[in-house]
Write a protein that binds this DNA or RNA. Structure first.
Lengths: 161, 161
DNA sequence: ATCGAAAGGTTTCGTTATTAAACCTATTTA
DNA sequence: TAAATAGGTTTAATAACGAAACCTTTCGAT
């Protein structure tokens, strides 16, 4: 009767949720983006039980989202750093953030915001077609049964035609 | 000892995950995007237990993501439809999808893809600054303590300056 | 060098959440 | 009119989560 597994689904959304779709995982990744690397930093920041933090970190390392490596300052404790795969989660975090900003905050409430290196706001994510024209909510259709194409020259395949 | 609540966090990512960050919720929303509206359609498609589907649908309706309304064909059963708030989740679904496509599928595996009304692929989501220049993974910083501004003229506030 | 504290976990145990399956009632369909 | 389907609710078992206690290694101060 274990939890239903979606890791063999042919829907990428389902597979992604299977790997990172629990309460804590993306918050740990968010903290990693903010520069936290140590067990105790995550634990203090998130306030979650140490046993479940330990389990999540193991899972994140096993899935190649975080990398466990010796402390950069020569200390004995190790640090958790984002891999490229983990850094690629930033668009998911931004999408979650923008939706939350829009729908989960009242006017006047304090919230954290994201800035670029020039301290300017970042652009909203937008859904566009191959030519860059904005698509509305009704303009997307899901089609079955495509095979993932080989990524060329070491670069990740782009859905942009 | 109930689950830790994040609905009062000042991080929009945390609040969003608190509301939709469980295993099933986003998959139900994904199904709603594909046009499914009935209890039995969701249940057959997702293969989850009926009691937890019922609970999730209640939560989605309570949170204003789905709307329960009488069947459009005059039948006695009701249908679940996305609200505007629910439709705004599309960028999150696309972000999850693109990450899954990149990192969770081997070459040659079957997967569903998304097309626009002209049957063309959609563009990748991209992280850009206010001027539209692409930002890398290191180019985002989180800043504390901003107050949500009042949305002008009925439109949602844009983080695009 | 030694003592105490902190880091980084693991173990234990109680509570909550998920799950499959059985059950139920109101509607359709044959 | 009978049977099947829709749309749930209830029950009981299992799995995941949570807090606290515990443990070992390392670090900092004396």
């Amino acid at each position: 009767m274990r939890r239903v597994r979606l890791d063999d689904a042919n829907c990428p959304v389902a597979r992604t949720l299977d790997e990172i779709g629990d309460w804590w995982t993306l918050l740990i990744v968010r903290d990693a983006f903010v520069g936290r690397t140590r067990f105790s930093e995550f634990q203090k920041s998130l306030g979650l039980a140490k046993n479940i933090l330990a389990e999540r970190l193991k899972m994140l390392v096993a899935n190649g989202i975080l990398e466990k490596r010796p402390a950069s300052d020569g200390g004995a404790r190790s640090e958790y750093h984002l891999t490229d795969k983990g850094r690629d989660l930033r668009l998911i975090l931004i999408a979650l953030r923008q939706w939350g900003e829009d729908h989960l905050f009242e006017d006047g409430e304090d919230m954290t915001v994201i800035r670029d290196p020039a301290s300017q706001p970042i652009a909203r994510l937008r859904l566009a077609n191959a030519v860059g024209e904005e698509l509305g909510p009704e303009d997307i259709r899901v089609v079955q049964g495509h095979k993932k194409r080989h990524a060329k020259a070491g670069r990740v395949e782009s859905t942009l035609a």
